[in-house]
Each structure stands twice: as C-alpha cells, then as structure tokens.
Simulated scan of single mutants.
Amino acid sequence: MAAVAELTEQGPGPAAGIAPGTAGTTDTGVPVRVAVVDDDALVRAGLRLILGGDPRLEVVGEAGDGAEAAALVARHRPDVVLMDIRMPRTDGLTATRELTARADGPRVIVLTTFDTDEMVLTALRHGAAGFLLKDTPPARLVEAVHRVAAGQPILSPSVTAQLIAAVTHEDDTRKRAARARLDRLTEREREVALAVARGLSNAEIAAELYLGVATVKTHIGRLFTKLDASNRVQIALCVHDAGLA
C-alpha cells in the first residue's frame, strides 16, 4: 500500500495537472462516480481513502469480485470502475468484458500488480480504458480517473511496448483482419486512427492535421463505428494489429 503512505505525505489535494472544477466533473458539474472492485479489503480501503480526498470524485460503492461488480454497477451506475484482474468467482477480465459491452456501461481501469502481466492486453481487448499499477502514486491515480472519465485512455510506455511485441509475435490472421478493418476508412480517417494510436489528444490531432477539434471528434466517432471499437484504446489496438504503429 505504498500509494496510501504517499497520500499521507502529499495530502488529499487535487491531482497534478488538472484544474479544479474542470476535467474532474461530469457535464452536469457533479462529481465523477467511481466504483472499486478488488478482492482485497485493504486495497479497497486504500483506494477509497485516496479517491475520497478529491471532492470532484465520489466513491459510490465497492465489490469483492466480478460477479458483485455487475450488481454494483447496475445499482449505482458509476462513471468509472477500478477493476482488479485476479479475483475469485468472476475475474476482472470477464467482468470488464461484460461491463464494457453494455450500451451505458462504465469506463474500466484495470488494476494490476505487475505491468508485465499478459492479462492486461486481454483486458484492453475486452474494452478496458487503460491500466494502473496498484502502487501508483495517489496524485497520478486521481488524475488517471479524471482522464478516463473524460474519455482519454491510460497506457504506460511498458504496456505500449507489450502491444507492439504482441503484434510482432502473432500470426498473420490478426494482421490481415485488422488491415481489412482499416481498409474501410477514408484517407483522413486513417490519418486520425494513426494519430490516436500514437496517443495524441483531440487537440493535438487537430493541430497536426490542420482540422478543427469538432471535426476530429466526428472522425473518431466514425472510427468507433467502422472499426467496431468502444474506445480509443481499441482503435490503437487495431492499428497495432495491422502493423502500422
């Protein structure tokens, strides 16, 4: 629980890099609703302590496994779920797939002990918006929740490297399938997809391609449909699978 210890030193102030009252609230100005799913009660308590220190976040509930998570989400409708991978009964991978498949499902951040865990890749393919190590410093944890709530994926360089390595070692079937999906795109949509795979924000893509931010959002919406993707991470995965990044 290194993160909890660091919280005591830093205090419960807003996450670095996020202006108070902006990215940390929903469009209606209410706090981002967060649920915590982990089979370790101590971890859940630590995460509650960290998240509860930011008034722009509201922890609406917690669960000890994936089966409980489904009921929790149905009852409290959180915006973001922090999801452990290894849990009894229904594991985090299965729960992530089920939650993100819902039309109004929450965004899921996978929690893991090691960033080399191969199951992180599976979680991303199941629709997770990103991953965090359990010893992530409190300020970064809070910032990550805000970013995911705002629709921005959370990927570390180490996981990006895993994605590239996974593509390198997979057979040609996945590559051909990914390239076939990308062939559905217009030239401009492909440029936007490649930029998303590089981790650029909407504003950065707009500046690079000389487009308006609203136009970029429109293109990304079309990418979700044409690539059968539920979030930006899955767009990036498709580009990586095709061997284009």
Rank of each mutant, 00 (worst) to 15 (best):
A245G: 14
P31W: 07
D228H: 14
E170K: 14
D79F: 11
V30P: 00
G52C: 12
A19G: 13
A144L: 05
E98I: 12
R86M: 06
L155G: 06
I220E: 01
A103M: 12
M119S: 06
T186D: 11
A166G: 05
A71K: 06
T96P: 13
R75G: 00
T173M: 14
A45R: 14
T26W: 09
G21H: 06
K217L: 02
L163S: 02
V110M: 06
A203N: 07
V216T: 01
G52F: 10
V34Y: 01
V145N: 01
T22G: 01
A180Y: 07
R140H: 09
S156N: 10
G130C: 08
D241C: 12
G221T: 00
P137N: 02
A23Q: 11
D39H: 10
R86G: 11
P153V: 03
L121H: 05
A206D: 03
P88S: 08
S230R: 09
R48C: 15
E208T: 09
T22C: 04
L7V: 08
L244V: 11
L132H: 14
D183Y: 15
T173G: 15
L121V: 14
A214P: 04
I109H: 14
A245L: 06
A206F: 05
G46Y: 04
D115W: 07
I154T: 05
P137K: 05
T90V: 09
R33Q: 10
T26V: 03
E62A: 15
A5K: 07
C238E: 09
A236Q: 03
L93H: 10
M1G: 07
L51V: 03
V59Q: 00
Q234K: 07
E187Y: 15
G13L: 06
V4C: 09
A16N: 10
R125W: 13
L209K: 03
G64F: 09
A150K: 11
A15M: 04
R140S: 12
D115N: 13
T25Q: 02
A71N: 05
L57T: 08
A144F: 08
T173Y: 15
V216W: 04
N231M: 06
V34R: 02
H219C: 06
G11D: 02
D38F: 15
E170M: 09
A177D: 10
I85A: 03
L200Y: 13
P137D: 01
L111S: 11
I235Q: 02
T22H: 01
V159Y: 00
L72C: 06
A193E: 06
